[in-house]
Design a protein around this nucleic acid. Structure first.
Lengths: 154, 154
DNA sequence: TAAAACCCTGGAGTGCGCTCCAGGCAAGCG
DNA sequence: CGCTTGCCTGGAGCGCACTCCAGGGTTTTA
């Protein structure tokens, strides 16, 4: 009934999903609104991804409606991961293009992935540095500010 | 010859209020271009930070030029850290406002910092998930060592 | 003392990643 | 049959975080 809209609720099971396959098995065809429900992306965004070339061609029904398949969901999964590394969409598009172009882009793809991995590692390190700062600051606040932390309830 | 870049991992050790470190000692007054060199931010950005209320008011010379002091650099340091957690500038402004407002915002500040810390931890976890995906994919590419695509596309 | 280098302001412009709009098919139902 | 729901398209619009510009003072160097 109300599967529409871009809201986020749905699965609130932590952040990082160790997903293996949480897909309605058997099926290999989904409408855009189903994909919205799966990915948390909006339909607008899904169509936009396609327009800019971030998606491999998505199948269409005989009336022109999108029919996503499992491989599309897998791809969106990867895109989602890359997205939260901060990789610009343009770079992902480049990667998608290389995939489409075939085997001779093999090495380039490999290198792009490795570069990305380096970036991710660097970002994790940065964040850990930030965490250290926050910890220090929080401890400082906690030590200095006696009038808190004793709030019974909650 | 600039010292820019934020690549310092676990610099400084002490945890607390005073934190003078690796700054042209003795001095406590810097022009905007010196701050640019220190922080890697542009002068535009520094002025913009001030306009939007992200900076406590910066001293001025008798002719109206900015004269940053060590406490300003410390603040910019924190801002830089928070920035790379992805915290929106608006939130940092809110924090800055609370600092200006005085002690009665103490608890709120504390909570904001803690919430931020939770976010950072979550983001680190996400990134580590992404790292795992990248590792798998890179290994796959490396192992295959030969054309073949299972990018979820064709 | 003149040129060069540096700094000031308010406001407009930019790039990114969406997000929304208007207008319009297609299918299911009551 | 009309109504509602779901999807389609191209293009305009938005929020964020800067970034740049015009026009004009000030400070330093030669």
């Amino acid at each position: 009934m109300t599967v529409m809209e871009t809201t986020e609720p749905g699965t609130d099971t932590c952040a990082g999903p160790p997903r293996a396959t949480r897909r309605p098995d058997g099926r290999d065809q989904y409408t855009i609104s189903e994909v919205v429900a799966f990915t948390g992306l909006s339909a607008h965004t899904l169509r936009w991804y396609e327009r800019i070339g971030l998606m491999p061609h998505v199948d269409r029904s005989h009336t022109g409606q999108r029919r996503y398949r499992n491989r599309d969901l897998d791809w969106l999964d990867l895109v989602g991961k890359l997205r939260l590394t901060g990789m610009p969409v343009a770079d992902m598009v480049r990667y998608a293009e290389m995939v489409r172009e075939g085997d001779h882009t093999y090495t380039d793809r490999f290198e792009l992935l490795e570069a990305t991995r380096r970036d991710v590692r660097a970002r994790i390190a940065e964040l850990q540095g930030t965490l250290a700062v926050l910890d220090r600051k929080i401890n400082f606040y906690a030590d200095a500010g006696r009038p808190l932390a004793s709030e019974g309830s909650r």
